[in-house]
């Protein structure tokens, strides 16, 4: 939550001195993270970490990872797309390979925040900031992405789904370095609604599952505990309008009540989310041949 303590104004001048570390390999970054664990902050794009420091959350060590080799860039495999955690949003938007393989993700990223944020901010930073309203976890969840972490204590790799990560992130999962995000490479339709941002934003993905059904996931972002995510399934007959309203309603009923830190109340959200979901389903079912 970006609510300030009014006693002392948030300011860059509130950032006391710190020890700066600039590792160049993942192993070095990991060593530093393990060594200083609770006393260190990771700095990639630096947007959220800096704003947090301005509000008085300070640590004696800052580990700047922008120069770490292998932490940024986009690699397209046969079945998988891998995006380095320190890849800036803009570099996702302009990557020709990704635009060919998954153009809707490029378009989705192009609507995040604003251009200054996207030029500076990284995909990993968006996930790790854990700010309500940040949209990257939601879109990655509906695309069935995996987050690849290096566990700096055990020096092992840990792959977590977005859902798994959201579950464990509050319970001090230890010194984890997000290294990359892996997405399945397959035809998939993506649609979103950002009309009520920053209070509320929705994203949904849908694909043919090979058995005549359309399957996917839908996510609502805005609540302080992170996006609310659930699966959706549509039969071919389900493409018709009234049924999509029912599917949306049933989908929303499976979610916990969304309480927004700012903006409209829960009553409004519970009325509007099913409507926006139905519209997303309409868009998606048309988009998917």
């Amino acid at each position: 939550m970006l609510i300030d303590d009014h006693t002392i104004a948030a300011s860059r001048r509130r950032i006391a001195g710190f020890r700066l570390h600039r590792p160049v390999t993942i192993d070095e970054a990991c060593d530093l993270l393990a060594r200083f664990s609770d006393g260190a902050m990771l700095h990639a794009g630096g947007i959220d970490v800096t704003n947090r420091m301005k509000r008085g959350f300070l640590q004696p060590h800052v580990i700047a990872v922008q120069q770490v080799a292998g932490l940024s860039g986009i690699r397209l495999g046969e079945t998988e797309i891998e995006i380095g955690a320190a890849t800036r949003h803009w570099d996702i938007e302009i990557d020709p390979g990704l635009r060919h393989a998954l153009p809707t993700l490029c378009d989705y990223v192009a609507g995040l925040g604003n251009i200054r944020i996207r030029m500076q901010g990284t995909i990993g930073g968006n996930i790790m900031a854990a700010e309500p309203g940040y949209e990257m976890p939601a879109v990655l969840a509906v695309l069935d992405a995996e987050l690849v972490f290096r566990d700096c204590a055990t020096r092992t790799e840990r792959r977590l789904t977005v859902d798994q990560w959201l579950e464990i992130r509050g319970a001090n999962p230890g010194p984890l370095l997000l290294t990359s995000i892996r997405l399945p490479r397959r035809p998939i339709a993506l649609a979103w609604n950002r009309q009520l941002r920053p209070a509320l934003s929705l994203v949904a993905a849908l694909r043919h599952d090979g058995t005549g059904q359309m399957r996917g996931r839908m996510a609502v972002t805005g609540g302080s505990s992170g996006p609310l995510i659930a699966d959706i399934a549509l039969t071919a007959a389900g493409r018709e309008d009234p049924d999509l309203g029912l599917v949306a309603r049933a989908w929303v009923d499976r979610l916990p009540l969304l309480q927004l830190p700012l903006g409209p109340d829960a009553g409004y959200c519970s009325e509007v989310i099913p409507i926006l979901c139905r519209r997303l389903l309409q868009t998606l079912s048309k988009r998917l041949p």
């Binding site: 300011s11 301005k54 200054r116």
Partner: peptide, 24 residues
């Protein structure tokens, strides 16, 4: 604004517009 919200401090870093109040 000193919070990256307004963009008055925008400069070009390697040609890219960034917020100089949020860039060390």
């Amino acid at each position: 604004c000193d919070q990256g919200a307004c963009g008055a401090c925008t400069v070009l870093l390697d040609g890219r517009p960034v917020t100089s109040c949020l860039t060390f």
